[in-house]
Amino acid sequence: MDSPILEPSLYTVKAVLILDNDGDRLYAKYYDDTYPTVKEQKAFEKNIFNKTHRTDSEIALLEGLTVVYKSNIDLFFYVIGSSHENELMLMAVLNCLFDSLSQMLRKNVERRALLENMEGLFLAVDEIVDGGVILESDPQQVVHRVALRVSSTSFLLSSIHQCVLQSAKEQIKWSLLR
């Protein structure tokens, strides 16, 4: 069950997952062959979601792997590593991912905002983990490197757009009531 001495290696992260509140995959990146086929991956994600979505604890041992996780509104973030891995290292990755997204999405970490900025998510994960190696753990650096100019303006635009739409709706409602 336990190997006495860890082989020193930089390969720390086995997978990064983001699921929605139905347990469906929004993002999944597997860095080794623990779950080689899509079918096995989905089964694992299902299992993980069933075991974690009702509890607000942040760590579990599942299928012999250490899973650290965090949920926010309708999103579930998971970072998965070997059961011998330093749990705090995995936690550092999870926190970095969450904080980076939180900054990029202006604290608006929820499913819809994330889906509108998928490219930002792709780029951020790419800056945090590379092939299982932790590349960066400082959210400031990650946000800086992703440098999401286009998307942030589009985000701004879309939020303005939402405001306009909202007020238009409001007006229609009033006109109908009158």
Partner: peptide, 20 residues
């Protein structure tokens, strides 16, 4: 592009996924 999706979202309720 993104705006276009927003419109669809409005129609089908806020829970929908533009990539669905």
């Amino acid at each position: 592009m993104i705006k276009k999706f927003d419109k669809k979202d409005e129609e089908s309720g806020s829970g929908s996924n533009p990539f669905q």
